[in-house]
Amino acid sequence: MAQLTAHKRVLHADLHGDRIRAASGSMVAVEGNVDFKSSGMGGGGGMRAALKRAVAGESISLMDCSGSGRVYLALDAMDVLVVDLAGDTLTVESEHILAHTEQLRLDVQFSGLRGVTSGQGLATTTVSGHGQVALVSEGPVMALEVAPGAELVVDPDAYVGSRGQLSMNLVSGVSWKSLVGEGSGEPFSLRFTGHGLVLVQSAER
């Protein structure tokens, strides 16, 4: 079975006659006999999902890597993190997805108001099933716990993904607006409540 291993900023994808999906253009080197084929936009689900993505603007271009050998994948010298999923669901900003094993399912979910003004992430991507997903981030990812009494506010540019029973609200207002520069960044932040983990990267842009 295909195996994903993170080596700081490079992902090793070892293929044994099977297939993974990876962000288009992320292949930096390849050993063995591996074929690359564009698999269009991320996720499955046919026409309806494709339409949803077109509307949502949450799109990533993916490629199929199949065969036997090792593919070296990297994106803009960002750190790589491999997450093993065992039937659970991870919510991820799509531009952070570097690769995933074949058995995982990518879906697009609307997340309400989020992104109304930013033009980015009207919807977010969920990854679910059994397998591995590799994420990229600026600097290592921190997993910040959210629990009752420990609500978390995150800069939208630092937000990578989340899991658990979380609800996300927009925080706006004078206090927040003074925090971001004129015309730079988004005029709101994300407040998470509930129970779960929020993945945050080390750079705000």
């Binding site: 993190l81 491999v82 997450v83 990812v141 997993a143 910040l144 716990e145 983990l197």
Partner: peptide, 18 residues
């Protein structure tokens, strides 16, 4: 990848809280 707290998926770094 170790035994994750609160059933976090393995691979996710150690959980931080306040």
């Amino acid at each position: 990848g170790g035994p994750p707290p609160q059933g976090a998926p393995s691979g996710v770094p150690a959980t931080l809280n306040p």
